[in-house]
Simulated assay, not measured.
Amino acid sequence: MSTADRPREKASAASDVAAVCRDAGFVRLVAAADGDSLAATGVLARALAATDRPFQASVVAPTADPERATEADATITLGRADAAADASIPSAPDPVSEVAFRAAEELGHADAVLALAGASVAPTTPSATLREAAGVERRPGVATPTSNLSEGLAFGTRLHAPFSGDPETVRAALADCNLMLAAEDADAMDDDDRRRLASMVALRTVGDADATERAAESVEDALRPHAGGPFGTVEGYGDVLDAAAREAPGTGVALALGHDSRDAALSAWQTHGERAHEAITSATTGRYDGLFVARGESQGDVPVGTVARLLRDFRSPEPVALFVTDGLAAAAAVEDRDLAASMEAAVASTGGRAAGTGRRAQASFETDTAAFIEAFRGAL
């Protein structure tokens, strides 16, 4: 069914979220399936645990029904709308994890590094205040969650380049820059090597024949990362959180709560990145006025939200990118244009469910891809 009658997101101040947490005997945290919302869940959950308040944490897919019978005294939604929630932190104007951090500070226990990792994959930019609280410094290089560069560059989703999805192509690129010895151990690199690595990644990303002008700006998101956190770089940590939230929510929740789930989270991250980059490489594309469309092949579980974001940032010459595969679609926009409403209008005519925000939206639909594309074009 359509979700066109869904309530628009109501924003709760950090102090209100903290008050709900203080007053409730049992708190239910419901997060959207993205790294920012997952990190926010971890920040609040750790604050609740530190003050001996019981909680339940879950991640809900964009078009899934979040309703579940619990004995919770209060429900807090993170990155998603719910009219019945006692408090909600939407995905704008501030990162969800940053608002959660401010609430956790009021509760007396706030993990700034986790919050900054989540904010690094949010649609909006984290503040200097959060960066200062995290106490981490930028260093030369590229954001990856593993010291194995051939895997870190191939499967990361902070950029899309000719080597994305293929560790062997990464190794060849490293060899061209005399960085092959660092391929399996980036921790052994000095700052000069890291600068050469960043230059290689930037040049190959923006120099790709299919890259757009926007790619030159977008690739900066992967360069000069903050050093720290359980995955070496804060931005690499954020990439893993985002992948796990979408690919393996249970593992993602365990990671955000601080449990020993590093290997499982990295496995989910690798699977997610491999699927996303393969979907971009194999997609058939088309361009319309204001809209860039990529049709994916039927190839199992495709992370449509991640694919749409990467298309917008690195392949789309238009302000909106739409990725469509059998029964699933996602769109990403450069600026806020209420994509959620456009996606809802599309599924109202095709059947299905839709959810999203001003800049990102996803849908499941009950027609063929051509019909859905036309419906979305009309709604946009």
Rank of each mutant, 00 (worst) to 15 (best):
A211E: 00
R360I: 09
T41I: 14
I89S: 14
G229C: 13
A283G: 14
V60H: 05
A245M: 06
L257N: 00
R139I: 15
R68D: 09
A346E: 08
G79K: 00
G358V: 08
R53W: 11
V324R: 02
G232H: 02
R46F: 12
L153C: 08
V253E: 05
M200C: 07
V59L: 09
A100P: 08
A61H: 15
P317V: 01
A243C: 14
G141I: 03
G156K: 00
R214I: 07
S12V: 10
M200W: 13
D190Q: 08
D166Y: 06
L48A: 07
D338G: 04
A268G: 06
A215L: 10
G79V: 00
N148M: 11
P126S: 09
D86C: 08
F323S: 05
S97H: 04
H272T: 05
T75Q: 03
A69I: 15
T306A: 12
S91I: 02
T3W: 09
A333Q: 01
D86A: 09
I280E: 03
T75Y: 09
R28T: 07
L44S: 00
V96M: 02
E9L: 13
A40V: 05
S150N: 12
P62C: 05
A202H: 14
D338T: 12
L310D: 04
R359K: 11
S267N: 13
V27N: 06
A379V: 06
A354N: 01
L130T: 01
Y288A: 09
V30W: 10
D187E: 08
D190F: 15
A265R: 00
M1S: 09
A103I: 07
R312L: 13
R377C: 14
R204C: 03
P66Q: 04
G305S: 11
P126W: 01
A119D: 13
I89H: 06
P90N: 03
G358S: 13
G108M: 09
A57N: 07
C21W: 04
T129P: 01
A50Y: 09
L291I: 14
P162M: 00
L38T: 01
A172W: 08
G378C: 02
A31K: 04
G25Y: 08
P123V: 14
D301F: 10
D82M: 09
M1P: 01
E137W: 10
D94K: 14
A243I: 12
P162H: 00
G352S: 10
F55S: 04
D368L: 11
E278K: 04
A379Q: 01
T129L: 04
T144H: 09
Q270W: 08
A61D: 15
T129H: 13
P230Y: 02
D65W: 05
A321S: 06
